[in-house]
């Protein structure tokens, strides 16, 4: 039995890596990109879409029970039986 919160922790680790690489990329773009609307707007769009995905995920997750557990052996058994 694995609690669902484990998956949330894995997701949070992924999110931290994503935020770190994003910060580096944005820094590179703003430092070395040519001064102009395309450089500015692509960065703004990237930030808005990324924040949008994260916020939507958190809003959707807030309505769900993360203390529930998942039984891997039963789930695998179901999958194998179905197939």
């Amino acid at each position: 039995m694995i609690p669902l919160s484990i998956f949330l922790i894995v997701w949070l680790v992924f999110l931290a890596v994503f935020l770190f690489i994003s910060a580096l990329s944005i820094m590179q773009m703003l430092r070395f990109g040519l001064h102009g609307p395309i450089t500015r707007w692509t960065t703004i769009i990237y930030i808005v879409v990324s924040v949008g995905i994260i916020v939507i995920s958190l809003v959707l997750l807030s309505g769900l029970d993360l203390n529930a557990t998942i039984d891997i052996t039963n789930s695998l058994g179901d999958v194998l039986l179905v197939n």
Binding site: F7, L8, S57, L60, L61, I70
Partner: peptide
């Protein structure tokens, strides 16, 4: 939960 985490 798994769909939302995986999808995002």
């Amino acid at each position: 939960v798994l769909l939302i985490l995986g999808g995002s």
